[in-house]
């Protein structure tokens, strides 16, 4: 019903009255598929507005988690969590959690470093290597520091 209303709003081909809204949309989507196949490059569907950016179809991964103290199991604030392969970094929040999107790779080395001196306790740095299955979009880590 929604589609019927949309069509009746006048957004469709005004010169060609349509008998059935369902048929109309089926036909238009069929056209779309045909265009898609023949254009091959997908260029018809990939575009950027004049004063806009390229569209984003890049693959990335949400890496999130918590850095905790090995002894107290409490979250640690102010720990630098970084992805050395691309230079991205973030810092843990007051509860030790962190979150960052990063370029998708099959394997990551995540470095965890105490950079604030004695402010939130002193901890040894740690590297964690993770392997990422192709099907997942995010990964949740729990990293203990001593």
């Amino acid at each position: 019903m929604k589609n019927l209303q949309n069509h009746q709003s006048g957004s469709a081909d005004i010169n060609n009255p349509v008998v059935s809204a369902r048929g109309f949309f089926r036909r238009n989507n069929l056209f779309r598929t045909i265009f898609g196949i023949f254009s091959l490059s997908g260029i018809m569907f990939t575009f950027q507005a004049c004063y806009g950016t390229p569209q984003d179809f890049g693959l990335d991964l949400l890496v999130q988690g918590k850095v905790v103290s090995g002894s107290t199991k409490e979250g640690i604030q102010g720990i630098k969590v970084s992805v050395p392969s691309n230079g991205q970094y973030t810092e843990t929040a007051s509860d030790g959690t962190f979150m960052l999107y990063t370029e998708r790779q099959p394997e990551y080395r995540i470095s965890v470093t105490d950079t604030d001196g004695a402010l939130n306790g002193v901890y040894q740095a740690k590297d964690t290597v993770i392997t990422v299955p192709e099907t997942i979009e995010s990964i949740d880590l729990r990293i203990e520091l001593n």
Partner: peptide, 9 residues
């Protein structure tokens, strides 16, 4: 980029 930025002009 951490916040998921994907494209820049």
């Amino acid at each position: 980029v951490n916040a998921g930025l994907g494209a820049v002009t």
